[in-house]
Design a protein around this nucleic acid. Structure first.
Length: 155
DNA sequence: GCCAACGTTGGC
DNA sequence: GCCAACGTTGGC
């Protein structure tokens, strides 16, 4: 299998973890815990080291792509699923067969100007983006090389 | 705060 | 397997 770099978009609510939090983090890295959606989890399991990530602020004003990151550690069990005190605790997940994974990402750069959802919607070349599909709520989603290139050209 | 769209759960 | 009820997401 040829190794191909893949592209992704990951959503975070800035009130819980923002691009500035990532920038301020040790080594500008973070683990992406709390994903509790099978489709999003499966996408994380598809990630390889070096894959490119768009960092998106959801539930924000305005919602926008605010930075670029890359995958620095592939999927491994998310410990919060076993933590009874954590809001993401999953009593049905067996430690011998963890149900939920996370990856580590590292900041590449924060965009000087966020690319707002409103702006993205106006780009015909981005019409097919998962992010822009009606009712799309996936917190981890694939981005095509063409979409990636176009988004970077906007910045 | 509202609510549409979606995913999950559980009774049958 | 169906589907109503419920919880969550996330734009507005």
């Amino acid at each position: 299998m040829p190794k191909e770099t893949k592209y992704w978009l990951m959503k975070s609510e800035p009130s819980s973890f923002s691009i500035d939090d990532l920038r301020a983090a040790p080594r500008q890295m973070t683990y992406w815990d709390g994903v509790r959606n099978y489709q999003a989890r499966n996408f994380m399991r598809d990630m390889a080291i070096g894959d490119h990530v768009l960092f998106y602020h959801s539930n924000a004003n305005p919602p926008a792509i605010v930075g670029i990151a890359k995958v620095v550690k592939t999927a491994y069990p998310d410990p919060t699923q076993f933590d009874k005190k954590d809001s993401h605790y999953d009593p049905d997940s067996e430690p011998s067969r963890p149900r939920w994974d996370m990856v580590d990402i590292k900041l590449v750069r924060k965009l000087s100007h966020p690319l707002t959802l409103d702006h993205l919607k106006k780009e015909h070349k981005l019409k097919g983006m998962v992010l822009l599909q009606k009712g799309s709520r996936l917190s981890v989603q694939p981005v095509t090389p063409q979409e990636w290139a176009h988004i970077l050209s906007l910045g």
